[in-house]
């Protein structure tokens, strides 16, 4: 079983976690590639992939969190989220990245790059209805 010592950790980021793509294919989380997300969004009804560029990384007022500022999608909308520093994001062409690759490695055993301003992350949103 996955480690349970850190109850709040989402176990889908644990190295070895099995992920089902929208095509039905199963992959380990550490083996996912940009194309897997793109293809999954294509075959998912109602979801679309957005490019979310990290424009600022700040300390969060919430202790133990960091505040990430993104500009999202074609509209370049500003979105701010508070996450734990070990939370991985999938960066286009680079793979899993977090504000603290050391913590991600320690808590999830998931190899990560350092998330930096300018990185373009994969996010999803609802496809607009035409």
């Amino acid at each position: 079983a996955f480690a349970h010592s850190q109850g709040h950790l989402p176990s889908h980021f644990m190295k070895g976690a099995i992920i089902q793509l929208a095509t039905g294919e199963l992959k380990r989380v550490e083996d996912l590639q940009t194309q897997d997300f793109v293809r999954s969004a294509e075959v998912s009804g109602g979801l679309k992939i957005d490019s979310s560029t990290v424009v600022d990384i700040q300390e969060s007022p919430w202790q133990g969190f960091v505040m990430l500022h993104f500009v999202v999608g074609e509209q370049q909308s500003k979105v701010t989220i508070d996450v734990r520093p070990e939370h991985p994001f999938f960066v286009y062409g680079q793979g899993w990245s977090s504000c603290s690759p050391e913590r991600t490695a320690r808590l999830f055993s998931l190899p990560c790059h350092k998330l930096q301003v300018g990185d373009v992350c994969i996010s999803i949103s609802l496809q607009s209805l035409n």
């Binding site: 079983a1 996955f2 992920i19 089902q20 996912l32 997300f37 999202v72 999608g73 996010s123 999803i124």
Partner: peptide, 25 residues
């Protein structure tokens, strides 16, 4: 000896943030 264990399968979209842009004023 490897003990059998249940394996969870997670959907791909649980891995990426849902960033819904707020509506412009």
């Amino acid at each position: 000896n490897v003990e059998p264990r249940s394996v969870a399968v997670f959907p791909w979209h649980s891995l990426v943030p849902f960033l819904a842009p707020s509506q412009p004023d």
